[in-house]
């Protein structure tokens, strides 16, 4: 996972085609993942406190947050595309090193029009058991649900008022309908995230924010009393997670 990321074929070939940009300064580009609930920052220091209000009216804690993104691409203002060579990244809120990833060692500074990535794995990449680092991280999806990997693991507890808290496991995977175990119906839930214009400066740091509250609203107001645990085999819940995921990411603006 922490492989060195040399530079991209596409880019280099464009350079060789004779643009005069060969002396553009480059930087080692890092991407930081930040997490928020409304206006509050969420960090590993807050794990376990039942404090975040959902749109539906519960409060919840964030005890564990892991998620996977793949196929990151930077699009330069002039249209050239830089594919990040590391094929996927697994972020873990409790491991600060995982929240700062390297997008490349020689990324030209300048203006870019978009950054895009896939949240989770597209079906073509969501192959069962083939990524040893993800297996070792216990990130797999059972074969009975079509195999492959988790996209999101958000675990904690919630409360309506002051009753004993209940657990929730908001785990996102490729949706699987197992009404007939011998004929699984699978539906892709990984989705593309596109973030708009940004600048790569000499200091080489970008920051993206995951707005955790959005997983529970917009467009679908999530009712934790109804959907809390055992969501992996819940086909409809998986589709709603995908819908709500659309507004989860944005550029971080401190």
């Amino acid at each position: 996972m922490n492989k060195k990321i040399p530079f991209l074929v596409l880019w280099v070939s464009t350079l060789l085609m004779g643009c005069s940009k060969t002396d553009t300064p480059t930087t080692q580009l890092q991407l930081q993942w930040k997490h928020s609930w409304g206006t509050a920052a969420v960090s590993s220091a807050d794990l376990n406190q039942i404090q975040y209000p959902t749109a539906h009216g519960e409060r919840l804690s964030v005890e564990r947050l892991r998620y996977l993104v793949s196929q990151m691409v930077l699009v330069h203002q002039d249209g050239r595309e830089l594919e990040v060579e590391t094929p996927y990244f697994l972020m873990d809120l409790s491991e600060s090193e995982s929240l700062q990833i390297s997008l490349g060692n020689d990324v030209p500074v300048g203006d870019y029009s978009e950054l895009r990535f896939v949240f989770g794995f597209l079906d073509e990449d969501n192959l069962d058991g083939v990524y040893p680092d993800l297996n070792t991280a216990n990130w797999n999806v059972p074969a009975m649900l079509g195999g492959g990997y988790h996209y999101l693991q958000l675990d904690g507890k919630f409360q309506q008022s002051d009753e004993t808290p209940q657990q929730y496991n908001y785990h996102m995977i490729r949706a699987a309908d197992r009404s007939d175990p011998d004929n699984l119906i699978l539906q892709e839930t990984a989705f593309e995230v596109v973030l708009g214009a940004f600048e790569v400066s000499e200091d080489g740091v970008l920051s993206i924010e995951m707005q955790l509250d959005q997983w529970f609203q917009n467009p679908y107001t999530w009712d934790l009393a109804q959907w809390n645990t055992m969501l992996m085999p819940n086909f409809d819940a998986q589709l709603k997670m995908k819908e709500n995921g659309a507004t989860v990411f944005r550029w971080y603006r401190p």
């Binding site: 675990d155 004993t164 657990q167 645990t229 055992m230």
Partner: peptide, 12 residues
């Protein structure tokens, strides 16, 4: 208990 893992479901 307050630190019980969220994966320990139906604890009630």
């Amino acid at each position: 208990s307050p630190t019980i893992d969220p994966l320990m479901k139906s604890v009630a």
